[in-house]
């Protein structure tokens, strides 16, 4: 669970890095170039399956654990407690589920289209690529979609905030000196990832 989670986190960093290229180059050349590289490099292609497996593992484990956890308390309390010290820990299955739904829509919108559908090519000095960037820009012109996207990313951020330090705890990687640093880093990291992902649709919506 924790290993899969940390692995997926590393994927987020790469994903965000490529996405941000849209903002730095309105011609979308950089982004399309990077997307092309990701779609054609054999190593990345192979890695895609590892990533897919990571997702599935993380989700299945999460669901199984949650079912076990629910059955561990067949009679609930009348007066619900709230003693949790890591606030978002309470909602991991909820944030996770919504992020999962988002993921399916996200897949349908981008991955499936890019992989199996047809995307108009665009030619730059450096060569001709599928204009995936245009697809992104068009989607984010839809206000409703932007709102959905922002909410999903916020939830992902909450998921990350608990998940990051939690993974270290589950792996037993704690230390009186370093654990506070890990916790602080996790929170800052989650905020940065969230802001980064949210910035893209907002910037596109308002200025493209």
């Amino acid at each position: 669970m924790s290993l899969a989670g940390l692995f997926l986190t590393s994927f987020l960093v790469v994903h965000l890095g490529i996405n941000l290229l849209i903002l730095f180059d309105k011609s979308l050349e950089l982004f399309n170039q990077a997307a092309h590289f990701m779609a054609t490099n054999p190593l990345i292609q192979l890695f895609q399956y590892v990533l897919f497996f990571g997702f599935i593992l993380h989700i299945i484990l999460g669901v199984v654990l949650q079912i076990q956890n629910w059955t561990a308390r067949p009679v609930r309390y009348q007066k619900k407690g709230s003693s949790e010290q890591s606030y978002f820990s309470k909602f991991m299955i909820h944030t996770g589920a919504i992020v999962f739904i988002f993921l399916i829509i996200h897949f349908a919108n981008f991955f499936v289209k890019a992989k199996f559908g047809h995307i108009d090519p665009i030619t730059y000095d450096s060569g001709t690529y599928e204009n995936l960037g245009q697809l992104v820009v068009e989607l984010f012109r839809d206000g409703a979609y932007v709102i959905f996207y922002v909410i999903a990313i916020l939830l992902l951020g909450f998921h990350l905030d608990h998940g990051f330090q939690s993974a270290f705890q589950s792996l037993g990687l704690t230390h009186s000196r370093y654990t506070p640093i890990i916790k602080g880093f996790g929170t800052v990291f989650s905020i940065l990832i969230t802001l980064g992902f949210i910035a893209i649709p907002l910037v596109i919506y308002f200025s493209f």
């Binding site: 003693s83 949790e84 010290q85 890591s86 820990s89 991991m92 608990h162």
Partner: peptide, 11 residues
Amino acid sequence: GNCTNTYACEA
């Protein structure tokens, strides 16, 4: 149940 590191136990 399983530990999801909510830390309610410590509290």
